[in-house]
């Protein structure tokens, strides 16, 4: 007697010889993968998508990022929540009048926070701001950006780093 062997190909109809792929196990694997990926999405408190070509310094002992307004300092300028506000060339801001534009953008964000907080008691106005800067960004540029942020009520900067293996 011929021994019975398990196969992923299941014979559906003996008379026609039609074969059907046994995909139940594949569905199981995909379900687990999907749950795993969705869980990863849900547990990420805040996400950061650095701009292309940006090198954020790596460090150990950093804390978990809390949701806050994001200010990105790159070689080509400064953006607030992904919207470019200041244009720069090689970290140099040519027109100093642009700093007022940064101030206006931050003030608008603050006003938005205050409006939400006035309508929803569960939400409070935060003085946190996440600074995502290129590792080569010079201190004078960062200092000026932080000064403008502090003037608009953002006095608790969160300095973003890439987590290094502890």
């Amino acid at each position: 007697m011929k021994p019975q062997t398990k196969s992923f190909l299941k014979r559906r109809n003996n008379s026609s010889g039609e074969l059907a792929l046994q995909i139940t196990s594949m569905a199981d694997i995909f379900t687990i993968l999907l749950i795993f990926l969705l869980k990863g999405y849900a547990t990420d408190a805040a996400t950061v998508q650095p701009s292309a070509g940006m090198s954020i310094p790596a460090a150990t002992g950093s804390a978990v990022m809390k949701e806050a307004l994001k200010m990105e300092v790159t070689e080509s300028g400064i953006s607030v929540e992904g919207v470019p506000v200041i244009q720069a060339a090689n970290f140099a801001v040519s027109d100093s009048n642009q700093w007022s534009q940064l101030g206006a953008a931050l003030a608008q964000s603050k006003k938005k926070q205050e409006n939400i907080a006035s309508k929803n008691t569960d939400v409070s106005v935060s003085s946190r701001i996440t600074l995502i800067a290129d590792g080569r960004a010079p201190w004078p540029l960062l200092k000026e950006a932080l000064r403008v942020a502090a003037e608009n009520g953002f006095t608790e900067p969160q300095l973003a780093v890439v987590k290094r293996g502890e």
Partner: peptide, 15 residues
């Protein structure tokens, strides 16, 4: 998915 794990160092700006 973001495979870059971002952490933060909290700081303050003295008023």
């Amino acid at each position: 998915a973001s495979f870059l794990s971002i952490g933060i160092f909290e700081a303050t700006i003295p008023t």
